[in-house]
Design a protein around this nucleic acid. Structure first.
Ligand SMILES: [Zn+2]
Ligand SMILES: [Zn+2]
Ligand SMILES: [Zn+2]
Ligand SMILES: [Zn+2]
Lengths: 143, 143
DNA sequence: CAGCAAGATGAGAACCGTTGTCAAATCCGT
DNA sequence: ACGGATTTGACAACGGTTCTCATCTTGCTG
């Protein structure tokens, strides 16, 4: 929320939501991002690029990911051990139901919990709400 | 999937709530934890100990915090930039509403989200449900 | 098309939170 | 007090992320 970016004052006015400059590398990153639906680490994404023949420096991958995250084009989350994981921003916000023993994951969503978090937050005077939610259990075939 | 826990505890039930060994250092850490209500980083906690005269090695602080977290005596969460933050925890199941800028934390709870997670999980055939949920926002005084 | 300045890139170093190492200190039951 | 097991702490090592900066590219102008 703090407006700390002095570089956005182009004479032509507000920049559109498009990528600042569609360089080969940035397109490559954006491209890999569209090949998977789960969250992957920056380094993993770098490897994917490498494996697919695209040669993009690790620093550039980080920079691009950060940039896409800032512009809201990708979702970011932190793994339990502190790594950042990225995923192309899907239109539907959802959570994960993960099997504790085999890892089987189901994507779940619903307005109930979304409403609840917003309500609770508003009730306490908090604004600009976001949340993280993971559900763990034992799946049918592991019971 | 990840089978990385060799310390298989007996399936007899809940872990005992007692601290393994109440050494001077562990008590000191547990003590500082009771002096604040928001989430603090391990290093911050180490500084607090230092400032209060208690000399506890950084490694020990990390170890103790980890241990308390594992035994459920403290809450842990990851800040946006990947650092772990700790806070003394009340015994009842609850979630946190955390201010993104000043860290002010409110414990929240309610049957709604509990019911929702159980229902969703059951709907997908998952049993023995648990969940993690954190809500982030900007508190009233930081707006 | 040549020239140019702002912007982007990448190899590697720097950073920083966290974890590992291991000798020395401490604890505890006997 | 004794001896074995546990814990501690200074410091090294690690891994993810960011910084640095010399070297390209890009987009544009004339
Ligand atoms: Zn399973
Ligand atoms: Zn949600
Ligand atoms: Zn809950
Ligand atoms: Zn605040």
């Amino acid at each position: 929320m703090t407006n700390t970016d002095p570089t956005t004052e182009s004479s032509t006015g507000r920049a559109p939501a498009a990528m600042a400059r569609p360089t080969k590398q940035r397109l490559a990153v954006a491209n890999v991002l569209s090949t998977f639906n789960d969250f992957r680490s920056a380094q993993e994404i770098h490897s994917l690029l490498d494996a697919s023949g695209e040669k993009v420096g690790l620093a550039t991958v980080y920079r691009t990911l950060q940039m896409l995250a800032d512009s809201g084009e990708v979702d970011v989350l932190r793994t339990e051990d502190g790594e950042a994981a990225y995923r192309h921003c899907s239109d539907s916000h959802h959570h994960h139901l993960v099997c504790r023993s085999c890892g089987a994951t189901v994507e779940v969503e619903g307005p109930t919990v979304e409403r609840w978090t917003k309500a609770i937050a508003a009730e306490h005077g908090y604004a600009d709400i976001s949340h993280t939610l993971e559900i763990f259990g034992t799946c049918a075939s592991c019971s």
